[in-house]
């Protein structure tokens, strides 16, 4: 976990954008899905998650709105924008390239 956490931290924005590609969602649910998808191995601290939301919002990659959630309760939902989708695609491509490079650099089977 110690090695991967640092690597994952660099991809916080992409991870969040990925969740929003599935549809609008709110902070707690997003984090929970991330935890479930990693078998409980990884999840964001609230502060990290919200700093990322604010960063993405400022960059115009996501938007936020208050949604009703039962009587008297409201909840802030996040939604990906077209620019966000574009960034997500680009980030995924970047990662594929990086991964291919890394695989080539750290693989010693063939030598």
């Amino acid at each position: 976990m110690s090695i991967s956490a640092d690597t994952l931290r660099g991809h916080t924005d992409t991870i969040i954008l990925t969740q929003l590609m599935r549809g609008d969602n709110y902070g707690y649910e997003i984090n929970k899905t991330i935890q479930q998808r990693t078998g409980g191995q990884y999840g964001f601290k609230e502060a990290t998650l919200y700093t990322a939301f604010k960063r993405l919002e400022a960059a115009g990659l996501i938007t936020a709105y208050w949604g009703e959630d039962g009587p008297g309760a409201r909840r802030r939902y996040y939604s990906i924008t077209d620019a966000g989708r574009e960034t997500w695609r680009k980030n995924c491509q970047d990662w594929q390239n990086t991964r291919a490079l890394l695989d080539a650099l750290i693989n010693i089977e063939e030598e």
């Binding site: 999840g43 964001f44 601290k45 609230e46 502060a47 990290t48 919200y50 700093t51 604010k54």
Partner: peptide, 12 residues
């Protein structure tokens, strides 16, 4: 504990 480090939020 899951709140984590709020420094960046404060900066925001």
């Amino acid at each position: 504990d899951d709140l984590g480090d709020v420094d960046e939020l404060l900066a925001y």
